[in-house]
Amino acid sequence: MEALIVQLRRLQETALAELTKISATKDLTNWRVQYLGKKSELNALSKQMGGLRQEERPLFGERVNEVRNALEAAYLERQTALAAAEQALRLAQETIDITLPGRAIGRGAIHPISRVIQEIEDIFLGMGFSIVDGPEIETDHYNFELLNLPKDHPARDMQDTFYLSDELLLRTHTSPMQVRTMERMQGDVPIKVIVPGRVYRRDEDDATHSHQFTQIEGLVVGEGIRMSDLKGTLESFAKALFGPEQRVRLRPSYFPFTEPSAEVDLLCVHCHGEGCRVCKGTGWIEILGAGMVHPRVLDMSGYDSTRYSGFAFGMGPERIAMLRYGISDIRLLYQNDLRFLAQFARA
């Protein structure tokens, strides 16, 4: 038996030694057939058990099993290692250039003016305002007369007008919708609306003027509305649009349809009040016109000015877009060069 056991040991050593040299799955299969298969030496040795003594047989059988288990275990281990190595190799071969671009899903851009309008709309929607739209071709009556600008009023010079006939014109501001909204509401309060839209003035196009541009009008009418409410509303708006450190400054001004009237300045969005080129060193930038709705406008629109009051404001999305995005020439906004527009692709 000793001799057999020696043979077993030698077999084990030889098999394990060979196993370590194997690096291909095919060779591993051959190894398995050779050392663990039906015709293997191990099987042949185990068959010699019959020639052993009765008392030696269990011991020998145990040894044979030990060797078989050891080889099986070594085989499995080797197989796992080889599979891992082969997978690693395959993965390495499958490596791609992850710096190449992905399959393009075309993405355009919302026009910067629309972006600004949407943002402003969202701020006022959050404050409970509704959005109303109105006609771009207006009557002289709504565009001027009901806004306290009778014919031949010198203030009409402030807005050079494109006339289509004696009575019809391209609206010079979104303010006619103040009157149209009040008429539609037929005396109901509160009114809280904003009016975004295209407007037209007889201006030569240059870096800061455009014969067509957009405006956002705002109107609030109710009982007990104060001028301080106008300031508070615009301050909330300014903080929402330009950040919590924003402040507004009102300066007396004149619009025929508001009294008192104000120009509204914000802290310069570039220098935050320090004074820079954008704000011409003043620290403030003019951004809005506003005021308390003129009593005559209220009365003409069916709201008794001794009972109701309100405020109105108007701003230019182009100006805000230009400040925001550092655009120096308004014409870029109407040229629609895709290289320009592509700069606004962020969602």
Partner: peptide
């Protein structure tokens, strides 16, 4: 915009 189109704003006149 998400389908690759760019919004433009042109003159009515």
């Amino acid at each position: 915009v998400n389908m690759g189109l760019f919004e433009v704003r042109t003159y009515a006149l």
